[in-house]
Amino acid sequence: MKVNNLGLGIIAAFAALCLGIAGIQLPNPSKQIYGPGFFPLLLAVLLGVTAVALVVEGGRQRAAPLISLQPWTRNPVFLLRFAAIPIGVAFYVLCVGTLGFLPTVSVLLLALFLSLGVRWQLALAVAVGAALLMHSLFHLGLRVQLPWGLLEPIRW
């Protein structure tokens, strides 16, 4: 998604406003000369100036539309693949505790491989293999604790 300079400037101005309001409201319990609110306010001001610069630049280039969607967004396959990443990460965070690292990662990798059009036999093999390899690297090699989840009874 491309946003032209005018749009960016508007977003920046809005952010500057929010930041400024947040900064003003910050308390200064230790009564330091330049309290916790100083830098947020300073940055809000600088952001506001930048917003103005962006709007001015945007005014000069009238050609580009405010918001334009890239060609890939019109292709449902690409859109799905793109979305698969945040969904996949969310799946990991939410399920790794209960399912365990090996099952979660195998499923995640399998899903991503399939979405990219890899043949299911290869996808399955690499998914499980890579999961095992990474698990070993971190668990045995680096002694980082990864959740066992469903595989708790057969932990090694």
Partner: peptide
């Protein structure tokens, strides 16, 4: 290319750095 976009990015980094309690005033921010 665009200096104002560079500054925008810089400010983004600076603002993100302000999140949290690790400031001299030990006050939670953002």
């Amino acid at each position: 290319s665009s200096p104002s976009k560079g500054v925008l990015s810089l400010l983004l980094g600076l603002i993100v750095a302000m999140v949290g309690m690790n400031n001299p005033g030990a006050v939670p921010r953002l």
